[in-house]
């Protein structure tokens, strides 16, 4: 729940950025590297840009990245997991091999490679990130479908004559949804960290301000600690927020204090 609050807070901040940021994040000034004070709440960076504003704007890309990648991974993963789980047999085997294959690919390296080859367009990065993340969702969905498939109400529905597709969507998926959603939210956290890592290395999309990007500048001038500390805190908070949500969902499913009768 706390996680939800954090994420929503940061989301609001991003959306309202133009209104609440005290300065234009791109505007450069002469106050280079001033530590936090009354004029610039979080200090300025190497080009005299206000850090607070940059952080506020930077949130947008991190949030979007996290949400989009997580969502793509969720949807695609669910579909790819539900099909083999339900139909079983050879399809199941084939898909499982596919999952294994994708899971083995080192995600960061792949993105590194893709960025080097295709450029740092953020859309590509998001898609590749989602591509490496969906298999875990698919695996979870598949297990869920397999378990739920055996429940009686599925047999009941089948006997009545409901089509397979409908059974899948109306009966099985809604019940098996939770673990996948929990997993996806945690993937969103990973995505946020991934994006910031890429930007940090200079491989992010230069068109957008990103927290990782800000941190990149900070590395060379580490004595000006505020440029290094603050953006990282926000990354941490956003990722933590997502992780807490995912954790909370898991907790709700699996009460840690199960009462036995």
């Amino acid at each position: 729940m706390v996680g939800l609050a954090i994420v929503i807070g940061l989301a609001l901040m991003s959306i309202l950025a133009p209104f609440i940021a005290p300065y234009d994040p791109y505007e450069q000034s002469e106050d280079i590297f001033r530590p936090p004070d009354a004029k610039y709440l979080l200090g300025t960076d190497n080009l005299g840009r206000d850090l607070l504003s940059r952080i506020i704007y930077g949130g947008r890309i991190s949030l979007v990245f996290g949400l989009v990648v997580g969502f793509l991974s969720l949807v695609f993963g669910m579909f790819m997991g539900a099909v083999p789980g339900y139909y079983g047999g050879l399809i199941d085997d084939a898909f499982s091999r596919l999952f294994e294959l994708f899971l083995m690919i080192p995600r960061f390296f792949l993105i590194l490679l893709v960025v080097a080859l295709f450029g740092n367009n953020i859309f590509y990065t998001m898609i590749i990130a989602a591509l490496t993340m969906w298999p875990s969702n698919a695996k979870i969905t598949r297990t869920q479908v397999l378990t739920l498939k055996k429940r009686q109400y599925v047999d009941a529905a089948r006997v009545v004559g409901v089509s397979n597709l409908r059974i899948l969507f109306q009966h099985i998926l809604p019940n098996g949804l939770y673990p996948v959603i929990a997993n996806s939210t945690m993937q969103m956290a990973s995505a946020v960290i991934l994006e910031s890592g890429l930007s940090f290395l200079g491989l992010g999309d230069p068109n957008f301000i990103s927290w990782g990007q800000i941190l990149q500048g900070a590395t060379r001038n580490i004595t000006f600690w505020w440029t290094a500390v603050f953006p990282g805190i926000t990354i941490l908070m956003l990722a933590l927020g997502f992780n807490m949500i995912g954790n909370g969902i898991n907790y709700a499913l699996n009460p840690r204090m199960r009462e036995r009768m």
Binding site: I193, F200, L215, A218, T219, F242, N243
Partner: peptide
């Protein structure tokens, strides 16, 4: 949730 590179910094 900590980004490794930030922790390094």
């Amino acid at each position: 949730s900590i980004p490794t590179f930030w922790l390094a910094l």
